[in-house]
Design a protein around this nucleic acid. Structure first.
Length: 450
RNA sequence: GUGGAUAUAGCGUAGUUGGUUAACGCGUCAGAUUGUGGUUCUGAAGAUCGUCGGUUCGAGUCCGACUAUCCACCCCA
């Protein structure tokens, strides 16, 4: 026990009992993204360290203390993906996708790694669903991105998640705003908490969401970014709000939303859940018109969001959303005796080839334990095969939900097994019987073509 | 990096003012007249009580250190 190796801090084991939830959520986000015209992109799990330094900013928290960086045998330094956007932009540029017409719309589902202290909703390895759109400055694009995020959350059954939006302007109006903030806080330097004193120089906007009661009190009277936006940024923001209202997407304008990554411009937004603790931001994103050129491309406007799947699932669980159960066994075959076990293995294989899930005994259990096992794995049907069945050539197919038993002839399919004439088996009476009964439980399922 | 809390079988818990073989539920396995599940009943396996050290005749129970986990700050998804 004590000398067992344990999983690294901040990582998670997703056990079979949980994995179905993940599949449900992953399928849902994929489907929504594709309906909005986004196509999947997959980029490496690690990149050259310089990519993240340039995109997130050399002074950002992510770069200064959260990266998993390894040096390979040469002189290169690589870093495990801390967020999705940088790698996507790099891949778009490297493969010339920015030259294939705008808008470009991609989505990804990627593991991300950040060396932080774990807590509720925050892991060192986490999975992020993200979308990126390139080549449009239209506020309709901002609105569509937000609508997609909203759609995903809605389809996941979440209502108690609120959308907060803000505009942090372009570099020009933000510079003016920073100056305004600085001169506002300067007279209060002595009262501010130590971290805020540092922020005053580096990033005065961060003062706005300090949790210290004193700073909060002072910040209450601080000037708002909304009053410092240039005409272009203001019009863009106003248009966005109007479009969102037309879409029926509810939002609140929160002038205190400040993104940590340097590349954001104009629109920023967050979807926040109150139900999963302090790390309540399920989805965060915005516009980053300066990033593509920062990474060596043309001046291409861009925007997107990241959505944390762990937090999404946590919120769904808190909201009592019911997940679809995992696929269960269609037919369990319970053999009794060595001869029967051989036949059972072949029958199970034949059933699988016909497109159904089948299991048979692998540990040499008696009939009763096998029935219990079949029940535990929620097998829909059970077929017992022993000496009687082998000699009289007939077996019973038991419907586990109703207890009803249907006799089926063994003769044809036993012959079929030995000859491996699987198609004939399933064209035969037994095949039809099994097929009919199994399908009876899934009336809605469509048969594939052919 | 800074705080606070917790640490007993696979999981969830109980263990009274420190006292002989650490309890219960779930789960697992096996039985309840010999080839049939879900309910019920019975039984079994499974814990060096996070680690190390200290106090004591004696510690799961008190003290200390360490480690891990959780929660919060920070930051973010």
């Amino acid at each position: 026990m004590s000398n067992q190796i344990k999983r690294p801090k901040g990582t998670q084991d997703i056990l079979p009992s949980e994995a179905a939830k993940w599949r449900t959520v992953e399928d849902a986000v994929r489907e929504a993204a594709e309906q909005f015209g986004f196509r999947e992109i997959r980029t490496p799990d690690f990149e050259e360290t310089g990519l993240y330094v340039r995109s997130a900013g050399a002074t950002s928290d992510v770069v200064t203390k959260e990266m998993y960086t390894v040096s390979s045998t040469g002189d290169s330094s690589f870093t495990l993906r801390p967020e999705g956007t940088a790698g996507v932009v790099r891949a778009m540029l490297e493969n010339g996708l920015m030259n294939e017409g705008f808008p470009q719309k991609v989505y990804y589902l990627a593991q991300c790694y950040r060396h932080e202290k774990p807590q509720a909703g925050r892991y060192r390895e986490f999975k992020q669903f993200g979308v990126e759109m390139f080549g449009t400055q239209s506020p309709y694009a901002d609105a569509e991105i937000i609508l997609l995020a909203s759609t995903v959350l809605e389809r996941c059954g979440l209502e108690n998640v609120t959308l907060h939006i803000n505009s942090i302007g372009c570099p020009e109006c933000r510079a003016k705003y920073r100056e305004a903030l600085r001169s506002f806080f300067l007279p209060h330097v002595e009262e501010l908490c130590p971290t805020c004193r540092e922020r005053l120089d580096k990033n005065p906007m961060r003062l706005l969401d300090c949790k210290s009661p004193i700073c909060k009190g002072i910040a209450a009277g601080a000037p708002l970014i909304t009053n410092y936006l240039c005409d272009g940024c203001r019009e863009h923001f106003d248009a966005l709000k109007e479009i969102l209202t037309e879409y029926g997407v509810e939002f609140t304008v929160d002038p205190k939303i400040v993104r940590g990554l340097d590349y954001y411009t104009k629109t920023v937004f967050e979807f926040i859940s109150q139900d999963i603790g302090s790390q309540g931001t399920v989805c965060g994103g915005g516009r980053y018109d300066g990033l593509v050129s920062e990474l060596g491309g043309q001046q291409v406007p861009a925007l997107g969001f990241g959505l944390g799947l762990e937090r999404l699932i946590m919120t769904m669980e808190a909201a009592g959303v019911e997940f679809e159960p995992a696929k269960t066994c269609d037919l369990y075959i319970a053999p009794m005796g060595a001869e029967a076990q051989k036949k059972s293995a072949l029958l199970a294989d034949a059933v699988r080839r016909a497109g159904y899930a089948a299991e048979t005994d692998l540990v040499g259990r008696g009939i009763k334990p096998q029935m219990r096992y079949a029940d535990k794995i929620k097998a829909k049907f059970v077929c017992v095969i022993g000496d009687n069945e082998l000699s009289c050539g007939e077996a019973k197919l038991k419907n586990m939900a109703t207890g009803e038993e249907t006799p089926v002839k063994l003769e044809e399919f036993m012959t079929g097994f030995s000859n491996l004439m699987l198609n004939e088996i399933f064209d035969g009476e037994l095949g039809e019987t099994i097929g009919r009964l199994v399908e009876g439980l899934e009336p809605a399922e469509e048969q594939p073509e052919g």
